[in-house]
Simulated assay, not measured.
Amino acid sequence: MNEAVRNLHGKAPPPSDAGDGQQARLRDAGVNLGAILEPSERDPREAADLPESLRLTPPAITSLRPLRHDFVPVPPPGDGLRVMPLAAFHWGGRERGIGALPQPRLRGDHVLLHLQEGVLQIDFPRQQSRHIGETLAFVPSGTAFSMRPDAQLRGQVLLIPHRLTAGMQMPLPQEFRSGIPQDADRQMLGPAFRALAGGTPKDKPARIAMLCQFELISFALGRLTRHLPGVADTVGSLIHSRPLTERFLTLAAQNLASGRTMSELAAMLGCSLATLDNACRQTRGRSALQLTYELRMERAVTALRATRTPITQIAQELGYTSVGHFMRAFADATGRTPEAFRAVSGTWREWI
């Protein structure tokens, strides 16, 4: 090939003793003029003994495109409040190999996944979380994960920038959480996603409404049906535990104002309190007493949002010993007094 280059450009003249040593090495090696392989302080193609057509002309600086000072970079993940189809949300780093799942990658915003139909797998650095059918999952900001949902998956994703959650009285969870939403919460999710699909609020009333939606979502995440580590959850035990838990919740709802104890309710169901608590923990992750507290809060939230029933009457109907007891319990659960929650709910109805 070197001989062909010499024949094309003419035989190179022998190097002179006083010539440039770097040019001499290039000529002796037969390097063609289009590819300089040896670094040099100046380009040998600028030598006086080369044809004019082979000399380089440095490009003029004025030919460069001027910099744009009005350029706005693409916002990184977590820069805005967004709702998108679950099947379109792919996240992760590089793939480990052909056909492999992407590596977990850190994300800066909160991710709320509402799976309605299909199978969803979320990969974390040291474990996997697999979900089938109706599921609500929450991945807090700063968590490394990856997922590649199937195109046939049905559901939605809500991306919540961490900065928008400032001022929440009932903050979102700080750890990954997933499970089956309660029936009342499932009915709330659709309107909540639609209300938040408008993006980041522009004024104070809209921001108040947004925070109200966030707190309802946080409340729903705290009531998910999930299995706890270390609790026996064999198919046989769940077959017996789930119907007992459902019967208990129905009975507890009918006796909220009666003042009956958990032992009395368990006796009415024909079982001991220990058996009832075990069934509730297996299916709902909480004791019978905790589920009763949550049931009272659910009824209180519904009454405050949808009716103008006096707070004194609500406390009495839910079985609280006094209005003060109800107000303390409600503030502990939601971060707001009943009056403040009702006022915010009124603002939410006006703006959504």
Rank of each mutant, 00 (worst) to 15 (best):
H131T: 05
L221P: 02
P85Q: 09
L112A: 02
T283A: 15
G80S: 15
V235E: 13
A88N: 11
Q174M: 11
A18Y: 09
E95T: 15
T321K: 13
L251G: 02
A206Q: 10
G167F: 04
L113P: 06
P51N: 04
I239Q: 08
R260E: 06
E350H: 08
R148A: 12
R27G: 02
F193G: 05
F341R: 06
A274T: 15
L54H: 07
P140Q: 08
R94L: 14
E41G: 08
L86G: 10
L228G: 00
L120K: 07
S178Y: 08
T234L: 10
Q121C: 07
L251M: 13
P73M: 06
A266K: 01
R6F: 11
A47Y: 03
A192N: 07
Q254H: 13
S263K: 14
A144E: 13
D28N: 12
G80M: 10
Q121V: 14
T312V: 15
D150V: 14
H90Y: 09
T225L: 14
D332M: 09
T135Q: 10
E215P: 01
T292E: 12
N32G: 14
H110V: 03
D79L: 04
N278R: 15
E46A: 12
P73W: 14
V139S: 05
R328F: 11
G30E: 01
F193W: 05
P104A: 04
I311M: 14
R299F: 11
C212Q: 13
A87Y: 12
H240L: 09
G19D: 04
P75Y: 12
N2Q: 08
L295P: 00
G199E: 02
R349T: 06
L54G: 01
I239N: 01
G167I: 00
L26E: 08
L26P: 00
L115Q: 06
F176M: 12
A279L: 03
P310N: 09
R349D: 01
F330R: 03
R148I: 13
G21W: 03
L101M: 14
P75A: 15
D109E: 15
G335Q: 00
S53C: 05
R336I: 03
I132Q: 15
F219P: 00
T62P: 00
Q152W: 02
R68N: 08
V301Y: 01
P75F: 11
A29W: 05
A47F: 02
P201M: 08
L54R: 05
L249G: 05
A279T: 00
H162V: 14
H9R: 02
E215L: 00
Y320I: 06
R107V: 13
Q103F: 02
G118K: 04
R242L: 15
S16E: 14
P104V: 03
H110K: 03
P161C: 02
P140H: 07
L153F: 09
P77Q: 08
Q290L: 10
G133L: 07
P44M: 07
R286S: 09
R299Y: 14
G118R: 08
T347A: 00
Q213G: 07
L238Y: 07
P191Q: 07
L164P: 01
R342Q: 12
G324F: 08
P205A: 04
N278Q: 15
S345D: 05
F176S: 02
S129Y: 10
P125D: 02
R94W: 12
A306T: 11
P173Y: 07
N2V: 14
L172Q: 01
Q316A: 15
P39I: 02
G335K: 00
